[in-house]
Amino acid sequence: MGYAVSLSLAMAALWLVLSGHYDSTLLLSIGAGASVFSVFLAWRLHILDEETSPYHKVWRLFLYWPWLWWEVIKTNITIVRTILSPDMVLTPRMVRVKELPRTDMARIIFANSITLTPGTVSVDLDDDEIIVHAVLKEMTNKNDFAAMGARCAKAWGEKGSLS
């Protein structure tokens, strides 16, 4: 039930952002109807769970984002420098990252964070490892991955946090 409520609130907020017509009662009620319908459809499709409706946990992700973006900016500059240098020196590597967060959701945040930082792409996400392709060998440092994984776990609220 909680998922349904938070999903419909999020969808109603989405409608308000999209619509921009707050004076029309008709459109507002249609918006309410649309968000309820989307929740109904999600229920019908059996996808009404914390993965579809993680909106009650989003605030913790906001704490993770600034750090992630700092990483993204740093790696972006490195990659662009490599791309624009006259002779591109590449040292591609494939590595297995074994230290993963426990929950699926945190793992997915971890995998997407790896992909989001240019220079590393998560190639495969398995039950016990992520295979990562890195374009420069400096980017395959085990400790860096471990640090990021720990932050992802924290961002999803693992280890002694609420939820």
Binding site: N76, I83, L116, T117, P118, G119, V121
Partner: peptide
């Protein structure tokens, strides 16, 4: 291909 993916990532993010 694998190295091109990283370059595409630059566009997609920053």
């Amino acid at each position: 291909f694998y190295t091109r993916v990283h370059a595409a990532g630059v566009t997609d993010t920053l």
